[in-house]
Every structure is written in structure tokens, then in C-alpha cells.
Write a protein that binds this DNA or RNA. Sequence first.
RNA 1: CGGGGCGUAGCGCAGCCCGGUAGCGCAUCUGCUUUGGGAGCAGAGGGUCGCAGGUUCGAAUCCUGCCGCCCCGACCA
Length: 514
Amino acid sequence: MRQGTGRRRQHGDNGHDEKGEGRKAIHDRTIPGWSYICSPARAENGRLRSAALVFSLTIRFHKGPAVPDSETIAMRLTRYFLPILKEPPREAEIVSHRLMLRAGMMRQEAAGIYAFLPLGFRVLQKICQIVREEQNRSGAIELLMPTIQSAELWRESGRYEAYGKEMLRIQDRHEREMLYGPTNEEMITEIFRAYVRSYKDLPLNLYHIQWKFRDEVRPRFGLMRGREFLMKDAYSFDLDQAGAQHSYNKMFVAYLRTFQRLGLKSIPMRAESGPIGGNLSHEFIILAQTGESEVFCHKDYLDFAVPGANVNFDDVAGLQATVDQWTSQYAATSDMHDAAAFAKVPADKQVSARGIEVGHIFYFGTKYSAPMKAVVATGAGGEVPVHMGSYGIGPSRLVAAIIEASHDDAGIVWPEAVAPFKVALLNLKQGDAGTDGACAQLYKDLTAKGVDVLYDDRDERAGGKFATADLIGLPWQVMIGPRGLAEGKVEVKKRADGSREMMSPAAALDLLSK
RNA sequence: CGGGGCGUAGCGCAGCCCGGUAGCGCAUCUGCUUUGGGAGCAGAGGGUCGCAGGUUCGAAUCCUGCCGCCCCGACCA
């Protein structure tokens, strides 16, 4: 995994070798949360006995700001690990759960606990990367906190007793009370107070992408409502409420951008206000026919503009204007629904649909900073507890949510931004010199252009390859068979609308490498 | 946590009521024929029937206990 050039040569076909400079990218490759890779250094000193490291994990940090996803992955299906199922296991009820199992994306290991198989993992990585880029763009700073926390920390905020059975409580060998973190407000507050003393260090927004555990009474719907789930949680620190409002607005805008980039239409909906009151709490809902809850909103939300990549996050008035627009009309989930208020929306503007919560942001003032004494010196002398907010996005849930929002009878229809591969290359007559040669050439050419391509080189009939390609939902399918090749053409199909076109391999290469 | 249901081959299921040492489809392996929307024929491998007790000459089947999983509800990212 490190520098073994000999080893890399063996894997010559996965495309890493095609590009010399790809090596560094792989090395620094961001892996959401962490990677289970035991580094030589770790193995040698071997004395790390921290309870959090019982699995000999090495945590590799991702360096610096957004890493463009430039790593090209090409793969031959015969060498990949893609356990497709014709029939989904009986327990899978909702469409995303069924499709994820059928497409070999994940496997259930216990109730509400899943392993991500390679295809699913790639989607999760892509989602995390987009989330990360937009967090960074807004000025938030990534760190990584542990999954295991001490009960002591939670006693300070009073939540150890208050949290209830959803919190997984565990004991280490010294019978110290620990817990598997369901969230990290206490820990981030502890980190903040340890180092930050002055208003001059504010504002500050720290986030991480880490696994959480909530011992739901009844986990269900596959990844949508698992017990273990990956979460991006950001925490903002400001001197006062006005500052906190701006921090909130930054995240609000970052969320609009994040979900748009993921290929989703998201609508911020008023959520239950925090202990401070006001209206600084929103759930971000994406619309999906099979969504978990009923939502009601004004039709204009579907056409509001999402700020571009050049949005100025330091423009206080500008961000406020954006947030004002995006909160100007009626939008509520069923539990916050006010039928009378909704009735005032013009009939032709009323949208009632189903949705899935994929993000939640809120301001909670000094709820943790006051009891935990996270205070800073003000410019006027004296100290005040900082005003905080927290902002969550569930990348693992998003994998399922995107499928709920984007699928058809044949399978998944991935938005291009999160697709595990961009192109499925189907050799319709494996073993035929003509198709084999044409496929090999296009495979090589696409890889050289940096296009993620999954080459179905199995000795399967064409029908089986079509079905598999539709199921796993890659945005583009290139079908190469003797029929088209007789005229020097290949067929390119767009998964999203099923449209297909015969074209020369050169034209296909051009189209797909744009 | 209340209510319901299910654990038999990798997946989907039958067999259980009425006890006699396990079967079907798909998948997998071999061979031949096929080859543009999940092919056909022939053959093969694979299961301590969730676990533990009990009843019986004999238990997948009957009884008891436990474990796991799913669905509805309450709850939540």
C-alpha cells in the first residue's frame, strides 16, 4: 500500500499504473473517517494500548484543504469484488436497502450495522469528499475525534444520565465507564476550552467525519436508520449570538451547495428550535417518492438559486440575504406542519411530497460552553461562555437517500458526482477478437483520459451484462458488440434516461472524457 | 419498549400440522451447444435444519429455554 513498486505492477490493470503521478494521489488519498491500514511504524512499536486502538488502527489524516478527486480508477469486473444478487434477502424492504444488497454495495453484520463493500465504499468516499470540500470552502477546519469517549466528559454537561439507552455504554478493562460517541459536542467543547482563551481566536468552526453509534430501539430501512452511521459534524464557536448567526448562515449555504453537488434538490425546513428559541434550526430535506416523512412546502423552493462556488462566506449581509430567501416561504415536515399556514400558500404553489432528512443544523448558544466552562476573554475585559452551533450531515445515510431519490425498476441511477464509476464498458461478446480488441483499446483510452471505468469482461451473455450495468447504475454504458463493430461503431447509453446512440469509439471517448 | 412474524445450502423457498436421517429454483464447478436484454442440455459439489436441553427406538418436525433477524407502532440523522 505504501511504496511497493513490485506489488503495484501486479495490479497493473486497476489503472493506477497508467499514470505516474497518480502515485502520490493514492498515498495521500482521503479515506472517510479513517482507514483500517496497519502501518509498519505502528506495527513495530506495537505498544499502543489505548482502548481506542484495540484493532490496531492507524489513522491517516488527510492533509490540507480540498483534494480534487483526480485519482482514476479503472477496473476489470473479473478482478473486482462485486457480489451481485439476483434476488435480495428477504429482510430488505425499502428500495435503497434492496438495491444496495443486490448491487453488492454492502452487507449487514448485525442489526443496524453494515459493512461497506467496494462499490458502496466508493460512493461513500465520493460523498465524503464533496461534503469535505464544501465544509472547507466555507472556512470550517477538519480534525478527527475518536469514536470512544469517557463518561466523565458527558457528566460535565449532564448528558450522561440524560441521554438514555440510545447511548452505547461500555467499560474498559479497568472498569472505567466509556461510551461509543453518538455525537461530539462535549468532546469538541473540551478541546476548544483547552486551547482557546481569547475572542481574537473566534470565530472558529471545527468538523470531523466519524462513525457514530446510536443504539436505536429499532434500527430499520438499511442504512437509512442504522445504529452505526457515518456523520459529518461541525461545531461553531462565536463570541456572541450575532456572530453565531453568521456561522450558522455559512453552514446553511455550505449545505445548499453540498446537496446540490450531490445531485439532490434539498429544502431547508424549520426544525424544533433549540433551548435558546428563535428559528436557528433547520433540517435539510431531500425530496424522494419513497421518503420517510411527509413534507409540505412552497413550490418556489424548487427554483431558488443555489450560491455558486465563488460565494463569499465573509459577506455577512450577502449570506443573510441568501438564508432569508431560502427561509422566506413555507416549508415543514409533518411533525412541524401547520395546516393553517400551509393553506395560505396559493393552491398552485403548494407542494406536498415525501422527503428524507439528510442534514440538520442548529444553534444552541451556551448550552455546553456554560456548564463546561468554555469561555473566552472579551475585548472589554472579563470572560464569557462562547456561543455554539452544531451542524450534521449523514454521508452513510446519504448513500441510501440518493438511491431512494434516484432509481428505476432496473436499478440504481447514480448522479454522476457520486457514481462509483463513471462508465460501464460492456463487452457483448467476450472472446471475440474484434470486440475484445475494441474494448481493450477504449478501456485503455478512457483510463488514460482519467475516466473511472468499470470494464465488464466477464464471460457472460450480453443480457446479463445489461442487467448488471443497469442495476449498479453507472451514468454511462458503452456497449461493444459485433453488430455495431461491423460498422465501426459502439453504442453509448445514458443510464438516467435510457437514451442511446451509435458512434465511433473516438466519438465515445470524446463524449465521455469531457 | 408494546404488538406481529421468521430462522432449513451463498440468495429465494418447500418440508414441520400427521416424527423415520433433507428437497426445489437461482447461484457455484465441469463438459458440450449457445451468444445484443438475466440461455439450453448433461453432470457435480455444497446444509451440525439458529443454539441448548427435553420427550422418543428415532426429532428439521413435538415440548421448554435462550439467541438472532424482520415488519407495524412509539422514538430518532
